[in-house]
C-alpha cells in the first residue's frame, strides 16, 4: 500500500503534465511544439538507428573518459596539495582563479592549441571538470579532524594506510560534492564543445536539426540530453549513497540531537 502510494505520488504530476501538453497541442499545428506522438515517433526514428553508434556513443565515451580522468587527477593532486601546507598556500590563489574561469571559454583556447580533435574535446572536459574535484579534495584533506589524525598516528597508521583509512574517507563527503559539480559541468562541456567545434556528436546533431528546422527531431535530441543527465544523476546518487552511507547516518544522528 505504501509503495503504491509512493508510486502514485511519483507519477501523478508527470502524467498531468503530459496530458496538458497533449491537450494543448491537440488540433493545433504549433510550429515549435510537436505533439507527444510526433515527438515519440521522431525520437524512435532519429535515435534508434545508426546515430547511436555514430553520434551518441562517441559523445558519451568522450564524456566518460574526460570525467573519470578529471576525478582521478583531481583527487590525486588534491591529496598531495591538501597534505602539504606550503604547497596549499602556494597554489591556492592560482587554483581559485582557474576555478573562477567559466569552463566553456576553454573551448576556443584548446581549439587553438590542439585543433579540432577528439582528444581536444576530452581535454576540454578534463580541464573544465577538474577544479571542483581538486579544490574540494584539498579542502577535505585540510579539514581532517586533528583528534582523528592523532589517533591514527598513535596507532602507527601512516603512509598509504593513512590515505586509505583516514584521508580518503574523511574527505569523502567533500570529494563527492565536487564530483557532483564535475559531472554536470562535464555534460555541459561535452554538448557545447560539439556545438562549437565539431562535425559529429550529440551537440552537433541537435544544432543541425535546429538549423534545418527539423523541430521534432531537435526536441528529441533535447530529450536524449535530458535522459543522459538524469541517468548520470541516478548513477551518482546511487554510488554516493553507498560510499557515504556512514556520513548520511551521522548527519541524521547529529540533526536529531
Amino acid at each position: 500500500m505504501k509503495i503504491l502510494k509512493g508510486f502514485a505520488y511519483g507519477l501523478a504530476l508527470p502524467v498531468i503534465l503530459v496530458l496538458i501538453w497533449w491537450a494543448s497541442t491537440l488540433g493545433t499545428t504549433n510550429f515549435f511544439v510537436p505533439t507527444p506522438a510526433t515527438l515519440a515517433e521522431a525520437f524512435a526514428e532519429t535515435w534508434f538507428g545508426e546515430r547511436i553508434v555514430s553520434d551518441v556513443l562517441p559523445s558519451i565515451g568522450r564524456l566518460l573518459i574526460g570525467v573519470v580522468a578529471a576525478i582521478v587527477i583531481g583527487i590525486a593532486a588534491g591529496l598531495l596539495i591538501g597534505s602539504v601546507k606550503w604547497l596549499r598556500d602556494f597554489t591556492e590563489p592560482v587554483l581559485e582563479f582557474f576555478r573562477a574561469i567559466p569552463p566553456p571559454v576553454l573551448i576556443p583556447v584548446l581549439m587553438l592549441l590542439m585543433g579540432i580533435t577528439d582528444s581536444m574535446k576530452v581535454v576540454v572536459i578534463i580541464s573544465g571538470c577538474i577544479w571542483p574535484v581538486l579544490l574540494n579534495t584539498i579542502e577535505g584533506v585540510r579539514a581532517i579532524d586533528s583528534v582523528l589524525s592523532d589517533s591514527a598516528h598513535t596507532y602507527g597508521i601512516g603512509g598509504w594506510a593513512r590515505v586509505r583509512y583516514l584521508v580518503l574517507p574523511s574527505a569523502g563527503p567533500q570529494i563527492m560534492a565536487g564530483v557532483r559539480q564535475c559531472l554536470s559541468i562535464g555534460l555541459i562541456l561535452m554538448v557545447i564543445s560539439e556545438m562549437f567545434a565539431s562535425s559529429s556528436g550529440l551537440g552537433f546533431t541537435i544544432v543541425q536539426f535546429q538549423r534545418s528546422f527539423a523541430i521534432p527531431e531537435m526536441w528529441s535530441g533535447i530529450v536524449v540530453l535530458g535522459l543522459i543527465g538524469v541517468a548520470m544523476s541516478f548513477i551518482f546518487q546511487w554510488t554516493e549513497r553507498r560510499i557515504l552511507r556512514w556520513y548520511h547516518g551521522l548527519r541524521e544522528v547529529e540533526n536529531a540531537a
Partner: peptide, 10 residues
C-alpha cells in the same frame, strides 16, 4: 539534471 545547454537550440 537536464543540462541547460540542451536548451540552446530552442
Amino acid at each position: 539534471p537536464i543540462p541547460s545547454v540542451a536548451l540552446i537550440p530552442l
